[in-house]
């Protein structure tokens, strides 16, 4: 690190070359290709990448020496790709040289907060140490703060987090994720976090058309495909599922596909009389989707209260 001072500082900088060289283009391209929709997120990441690239160039020319604050918050509904984008972000920061290793450590409240007095600090520090040189991703960060229980140890974890986020800025980047409204309340109750977070990125819900596309891509990844009826049924499924509780965007789609595969296997097993070809084995058709509870009005209807129960 000390050698950098001895090297003669460049007087001009070629941003395009730096962009090519750092491999940022590959990541942005990968992001564009593998993630469907999420236009505002991609836009923000492109902006962030540009900022970091320019910052790095400034640093090389000796115009600034401060490490920029890189902690981020990702807000959005479940299944909108927060974790996947965090992984890409870790890779991006690694290629730009802002984190040394570029690994992602995903934790929730349970990994940070202990069960008894004196248990929290070592536990939190252990996690922080593991994340050093990489990115710490705290999913549903607002569970750390539980104002209704004054004996909650979450506060202790928050204090350590804040301290490390400030003092070890060169060593790790913290990304907090969760639902938008609860994150807002969390940040209002802990203003220290808001001021330490440089980038707030909102993940919008996927549109129906985007989810259709996601379903096709996921299925393709598993080596299956829809026939015409299946595709139509899936589109209908997505529109119905959205109106029902616990809808989790892409995650709901994935779960639906998993269950469809189960039903398809069952159907083939029961109906097949002769030998099956590859096409039959890898086609999801209409009945596999139509069997879902979603078409019968959702999850609540099939668990009627037991007659006679109090």
């Amino acid at each position: 690190m000390n050698d950098q001072n001895d090297i003669e500082k460049p007087t001009t900088v070629d941003l395009a070359a730096a962009f090519e060289e750092s491999g940022v283009r590959d990541i942005l391209q990968e992001l564009d290709e593998t993630m469907i929709g999420l236009a505002p997120v991609k836009q923000r990441i492109r902006e962030t990448a540009a900022l970091l690239l320019v910052d790095r160039a400034r640093q090389q020319m000796g115009l600034s020496s401060e490490t920029p604050t890189l902690h981020m918050s990702f807000t959005g509904n479940p299944g909108t790709g927060k974790t996947t984008v965090a992984l890409k972000m870790a890779d991006l920061l690694h290629r730009l040289g802002y984190v040394r290793k570029g690994h992602l450590v995903t934790v929730t409240r349970d990994d940070l907060v202990g069960q008894y007095i004196g248990h929290t600090a070592p536990k939190t520090k252990e996690v922080l140490k593991k994340a050093m040189g990489g990115v710490l991703f705290i999913d549903e960060a607002y569970y750390l703060y539980r104002p209704e229980n004054e004996r909650d140890y979450g506060q202790e974890a928050i204090e350590i987090l804040l301290q490390v986020m400030e003092n070890n800025r060169d060593d790790l980047v913290v990304i907090m994720a969760g639902y938008a409204d609860r994150m807002d309340r969390f940040f209002n109750a802990n203003p220290g976090f808001r001021s330490r977070m440089a980038h707030h990125i909102e993940f919008p819900d996927y549109t129906d058309a985007e989810l259709d596309q996601i379903a096709a891509v996921m299925l393709n990844g598993l080596g299956y495909r829809f026939d015409q009826g299946g595709e139509k049924a899936m589109a209908e499924y997505i529109r119905l599922r959205r109106a029902q509780p616990h809808f989790a965007n892409a995650r709901s789609v994935r779960n639906a596909l998993d269950r469809a595969r189960l039903r398809q296997a069952n159907r083939l097993f029961n109906e097949a009389k002769g030998p099956l070809d590859a096409r039959a084995l890898s086609t999801i058709s209409e009945p596999d989707i139509r069997m879902s509870r979603v078409f019968q009005g959702g999850l609540d209807v099939d668990r009627k209260p037991v007659a006679g129960a109090a």
């Binding site: 990489g134 060593d171 790790l172």
Partner: peptide
């Protein structure tokens, strides 16, 4: 001073400790 650090990929944790 604490446990040996078996699964820390980065040495910043050592300096921290």
């Amino acid at each position: 001073w604490g446990h040996p650090m078996f699964d820390n990929p980065d040495a910043a944790a050592v300096v921290f400790e």
